Amino acid sequence: MSARRPALDGRRVLVVGAGVAGLAVARALRGSGAGVEVVDRAAAPAVGGAGIFLPANAVRGLRLLGLEDAVLGSAVPIARQEVADHRGRVLYEVGTDSVWQGIAPTVATHRAALHAALLDGAGHVEIRWGVGPGSIVPDGPEADVTFDDGTSGRYDLVVGADGAHSTVRRLVFGDAGLRPSGLHAWRLLGPRGDTEAVWSVRLGRGVTFLTFPIGPDLVYHYVDVSADDADAGLDGLVARFGAPVAELVAAATVAHSGPIEEVSLAPWSRGPVLLVGDAAHATTPSMAQGAAMAFEDALVLADVLGRAASVPDALREYEERRRPRVEQVQEQTRRRDRTRGLHPAARNGLLRVAGERLFRANYRGMHAVP
């Protein structure tokens, strides 16, 4: 009996989006026998952005992609996470090693540094910048794609890795999946000063302030609030916290501000078109699982494509494996957001008593290899 032919041997794969998810897919498919192309509407690789927190399962994903050393070289190890009230009184704290039990280190870094490592890791793949799909038409086992620069191609697999506002999702799935989370966020970068290597969050009345260092001289701040309360403005919101929150924000620069949106969609594939990362399952950043889920998506996709007899078989197996994990993250994230939104007295009392136990339970399901 002849050996099974990998689904992508000699096939053409288009990855739409050269961000975290798309570059992870390109990296994971190296050696698959497929011809992989990447397109991105941005004119050039991203060099801005703010900070990103990478829990141990995200770092494990980088390790399996062969990129752990490239990222950790400029990252800040985070040994402790603490949750406090608006005045800075600690409600509970956890050690990251004890939460993750040796799976991998937990770190924080600049998003641009992570993107640069992923871009370098996908150096074997052609990336066309300033180009995006204008139409995607599934046609039997393949898809015809017309690009907005006038070129076109026919592909055995199209992977939409182009974020929460995915063009691929809109073209193939219609106006489905995207919805407001009810939160508005500010992301800022400032001087690190004497900030400890700690992930530290303060919970105020309807507003959250998170901070952690992402380099020797740089710190990342994140503020979110109900979208209905966003008109209070950043200065008005941080005034609800005790020192030194207002001073830290005053010394920082806003890198991004806007509403946070979620994506919930079933199924994630239609014919030979598949959505991954935020294009398929964006959540609020409460659990810091966006990059981790993108890395896991890429690794599982490469695994099923490497074993399946056909692309349709691979995509069915992919969704069977990924959906339970992703839905667990989405539900845990919503629970954490609901807890943050409780009346401060009730919330703080709950977290003093059960915060550490709940925190550990949130991540227990992420320990297993996807």
Score class of each variant (00 low, 15 high):
residue 11 R to T: 12
residue 145 V to S: 05
residue 36 V to T: 01
residue 27 R to Q: 10
residue 150 G to W: 09
residue 325 R to C: 07
residue 219 V to A: 04
residue 236 G to P: 00
residue 227 A to W: 14
residue 158 V to S: 02
residue 158 V to K: 03
residue 333 T to M: 12
residue 83 V to R: 14
residue 309 A to W: 04
residue 296 E to S: 09
residue 80 R to K: 12
residue 7 A to M: 09
residue 124 H to W: 08
residue 237 L to R: 03
residue 148 D to V: 13
residue 196 E to G: 10
residue 248 L to Q: 10
residue 214 I to N: 08
residue 20 V to Q: 08
residue 112 A to Q: 00
residue 243 A to G: 15
residue 297 D to M: 08
residue 39 V to E: 05
residue 180 P to W: 06
residue 361 A to G: 14
residue 300 V to I: 11
residue 3 A to W: 14
residue 94 V to T: 13
residue 311 V to N: 06
residue 143 A to I: 01
residue 346 A to Q: 14
residue 308 A to T: 07
residue 249 V to G: 11
residue 303 D to Y: 11
residue 207 V to I: 06
residue 283 T to E: 03
residue 301 L to M: 02
residue 346 A to R: 09
residue 262 E to V: 13
residue 146 T to K: 15
residue 307 R to C: 09
residue 333 T to L: 09
residue 62 L to K: 00
residue 346 A to W: 09
residue 42 A to H: 10
residue 176 A to I: 15
residue 178 L to S: 08
residue 314 A to V: 00
residue 266 A to D: 15
residue 234 L to C: 02
residue 97 D to N: 08
residue 298 A to Q: 08
residue 266 A to H: 15
residue 150 G to H: 10
residue 5 R to N: 13
residue 315 L to N: 03
residue 335 R to L: 14
residue 119 L to R: 01
residue 46 A to C: 07
residue 188 L to F: 04
residue 295 F to L: 10
residue 152 S to F: 05
residue 66 G to T: 06
residue 256 H to K: 15
residue 164 A to F: 13
residue 99 V to W: 05
residue 139 D to M: 13
residue 362 N to M: 15
residue 48 G to S: 02
residue 309 A to L: 11
residue 73 G to M: 04
residue 12 R to I: 11
residue 184 H to D: 07
residue 346 A to N: 11
residue 116 A to G: 04
residue 245 V to G: 01
residue 27 R to Y: 13
residue 216 P to G: 12
residue 22 G to W: 00
residue 205 R to P: 08
residue 149 D to V: 07
residue 90 V to G: 05
residue 133 P to G: 01
residue 274 L to A: 02
residue 225 V to R: 00
residue 133 P to H: 07
residue 212 F to L: 12
residue 101 Q to D: 13
residue 359 F to G: 12
residue 157 L to Y: 04
residue 168 V to R: 07
residue 199 W to S: 12
residue 66 G to S: 00
residue 327 E to N: 15
residue 177 G to I: 02
residue 274 L to W: 04
residue 330 Q to W: 14
residue 263 V to H: 04
residue 59 V to S: 00
residue 108 A to W: 06
residue 10 G to P: 05
residue 221 H to I: 06
residue 95 G to C: 12
residue 291 A to M: 03
residue 305 L to G: 05
residue 269 S to R: 11
residue 206 G to F: 02
residue 159 V to G: 10
residue 216 P to V: 11
residue 368 A to Q: 15
residue 366 M to N: 10
residue 210 L to A: 10
residue 74 S to W: 14
